[in-house]
Computed example of a mutant assay.
Amino acid sequence: MSLLETHNLTAHYGDFQALFGVDITLEEAETVAIIGANGAGKTTLMRSIAGVLRNAAEAVTYDGRPVGAQPADEIMAQGVAMVPEGRKLFPSLSVEENLLIGTYGRKKSGHWTLNTVYDLFPILRERRNSPGTALSGGQQQMVAIGRALMSNPRVLLCDEISLGLAPVVIKDIYAAVPAIKAAGASLVVVEQDIAQAMAVADRVYCMMEGRITLSGTPESLSREAIHDAYFGAAA
């Protein structure tokens, strides 16, 4: 039994269908990358898993339980946290206050506290009293990741965490992944950067137009197969 699964998952925005029968799995202590171009359905998939978009109960299972129909706060309380695209920090709150938001609704304690988040991202300790939106883009992303970790999740959903950041900053962000996994979290990482996704993931799914077009381990997928799955095979 996988830790997280989707089963024939669909999603709609009004009359527009964004996902078509998506099946993915996430195992314990695994990092899965979801790649694809803009509009492929990656963020919709993450929002569906997190409960932001509701679905049939059996369309998403977590730890063997159907959770597809549950709201986001209930799913988060069970151990699934999301780092949203665009970070979504509260501009009126300090760095530390933004981090503490992540503890609301948490049912049990665990590895992640303010101190362990500050150990993971030392710059945040220095900036703890600064407004969250006064930080650089990379530092804001660290706050968003830390906020999600404060709920001590078993599953961490990371939606486009490298978007708009300089390569050296992206390297620093992804350097935290081993420590996050060592503390007990499994990760689903949405990435447009194929090379970064292949470097961090145990398995990769490629999406195009709301469907899974390719899956496998980074070692098993050729550059040509990924290109065709990402952009569509040439006629």
Rank of each mutant, 00 (worst) to 15 (best):
A56G: 13
L45Q: 04
L19R: 04
A59P: 04
E5M: 12
V22L: 12
G14L: 05
A59L: 05
G14F: 03
F16H: 13
V52A: 13
A18F: 01
E28N: 13
A56P: 08
D15V: 14
E30H: 05
Q17E: 04
E28Y: 07
A11T: 14
T6D: 15
G41Q: 11
D23G: 00
T31W: 14
E28M: 08
M46Q: 07
T44D: 01
V22S: 05
A57G: 06
H12Y: 14
N38H: 07
I35H: 07
G21Q: 07
G36M: 08
K42H: 08
T31Q: 12
I49S: 13
V60R: 01
V32I: 11
A57W: 05
T31F: 13
I24W: 01
N8L: 09
A57V: 03
L26G: 01
A59Y: 03
E58C: 00
Q17F: 01
N55S: 06
V22I: 13
G14A: 03
A59C: 08
T44G: 02
L45W: 05
N55P: 10
I49W: 10
L26E: 00
T25M: 06
G39C: 12
G51Q: 03
F16N: 10
A33W: 11
L45E: 01
A57E: 00
H12E: 10
T25F: 10
D23M: 07
T43R: 08
L26M: 10
E58Y: 02
A29M: 04
G21V: 06
G21N: 09
L45F: 02
T44E: 00
Q17Y: 03
H7Y: 02
T25H: 12
T43L: 11
V32P: 13
V52H: 12
R54S: 05
M46S: 06
A57C: 05
T10N: 10
I49K: 09
A18Y: 01
A33P: 13
I34E: 08
I49Y: 00
H7N: 07
E28P: 03
F20C: 03
A56R: 09
L53Y: 07
V52K: 12
I24A: 06
G39N: 05
F16K: 13
G39K: 08
L9A: 14
S48A: 15
R47L: 09
V32M: 11
G36C: 14
A29T: 04
Y13P: 11
H12I: 03
K42P: 01
A18W: 02
V22N: 06
I35L: 15
R54N: 05
H12G: 09
G36A: 11
T31G: 09
A59G: 06
F16P: 03
A50S: 08
